[in-house]
């Protein structure tokens, strides 16, 4: 029998997990509203997450749909993601200042999503360098005007006041090890996966992996720019790493085994789309024909899965034209 303290600890952990699951459950309006994107969730000593809402960007959630990571070392703070807007970036910095007196020394854009990079302006104003893979920076430069327009139509113009694209200013081209803020971080690039420049951040001391756009738990991942086989291979490689916790880009913090759910979804998406394509189903019908009911409980399934199928189908066509 476990000692009392261990049992209490386990019960508390279970309760916390339940609370988090409840707070981030998709499709539950009251739960979504009660989720405080500026109340940090503790992942490990010195590691926190400001949780994003699991639903679609809306006026209710202010478009704050991406988890923002905080890594506090002995001499400073590294942030994973900068938020949805200039104002959100500023609020995140204020919230971090309540956690520690140490300065934020680096922000990392792990992928090019407006909910993850539009806070860059706030960080730049405070002189904080912003790191990204070169392909993410390029992608942002090409797309962010459209992304801002899209986000405006989803959440309104007011929350995005003063928001514009601030480019990253520390570019990497491949996996990079860095000693920063008194911690050892591995910035992992697995090639073009979810997006060409998607990266993950691994803190070896705590075993926490910030998987960025490459993982989403209980939320349908956005695969519209994805190379599915490469993405799956990256997730399998993550599974072989000594991970303790995975912080996905969206959804609750989970154990590494939960990456298998993402792997299963990507496999299902690829297979179902290819089956529809080979059987002569047209582009309009493909999203229906390639439904994956086993994942339909995930948040955003109805909006994101058909879109994922659409883009994978076009990819198959392009491949056929290239042959």
């Amino acid at each position: 029998m476990l000692p009392i303290s261990r049992r209490i600890e386990r019960a508390l952990l279970a309760l916390l997990a339940l609370l988090f699951a409840w707070a981030t459950a998709g499709g539950n309006a009251t739960a979504t509203e009660s989720l405080d994107s500026l109340r940090p969730v503790v992942v490990a000593p010195g590691i926190f997450v400001f949780p994003g809402s699991p639903g679609a960007p809306s006026p209710g959630n202010g478009g704050i749909v991406s988890n923002i990571g905080v890594i506090i070392g002995s001499s400073g703070v590294v942030m994973v993601g900068t938020g949805t807007s200039d104002a959100h970036g500023e609020r995140l910095l204020q919230a971090v200042a309540k956690l520690t007196d140490l300065p934020v020394v680096l922000a990392i854009n792990t992928y090019a999503g407006p909910e993850h990079v539009l806070g860059n302006t706030a960080f730049a104003r405070h002189g904080i360098p912003i790191l990204a893979h070169r392909d993410t920076d390029d992608y942002m430069a090409r797309n962010c005007e459209n992304c801002i327009r899209n986000l405006q139509s989803a959440i309104g113009e007011a929350p995005l006041a003063g928001s514009r694209l601030e480019r990253s200013n520390e570019l990497i081209d491949a996996t990079t090890s860095m000693r920063i803020a008194g911690r050892q971080l591995e910035i992992l690039h697995f090639g073009a996966t979810q997006q060409p420049g998607s990266i993950a951040v691994f803190d070896s001391r705590s075993g926490v992996l910030f998987a960025g756009g490459m993982a989403a738990f209980d939320v349908t991942p956005d695969a519209h720019d994805a190379d599915l086989p490469a993405w799956k291979a990256a997730l399998l490689e993550m599974r072989r790493m000594p991970l303790r916790w995975v912080v996905p880009g969206r959804g609750p913090v989970g154990e590494p085994v939960r990456l298998d759910e993402v792997i299963a979804y990507l496999g299902g998406l690829g297979d179902a789309t290819e089956r529809a394509y080979r059987s002569g189903v047209d582009l309009a019908e493909a999203p229906r024909a390639a439904g994956l009911p086993q994942f339909s409980k995930w948040a955003m399934y109805a909006a994101v899965h058909p879109r994922n199928v659409h883009f994978q189908y076009l990819k198959l066509e392009t491949q056929e034209l290239a042959r």
Partner: peptide, 18 residues
């Protein structure tokens, strides 16, 4: 919605090549 896809991106260059 204005697709977040890149105008003049990689796909356009590939389509031009073929």
């Amino acid at each position: 919605s204005y697709g977040c896809s890149a105008p003049g991106g990689k796909e356009s260059i590939e389509a031009q090549a073929r």
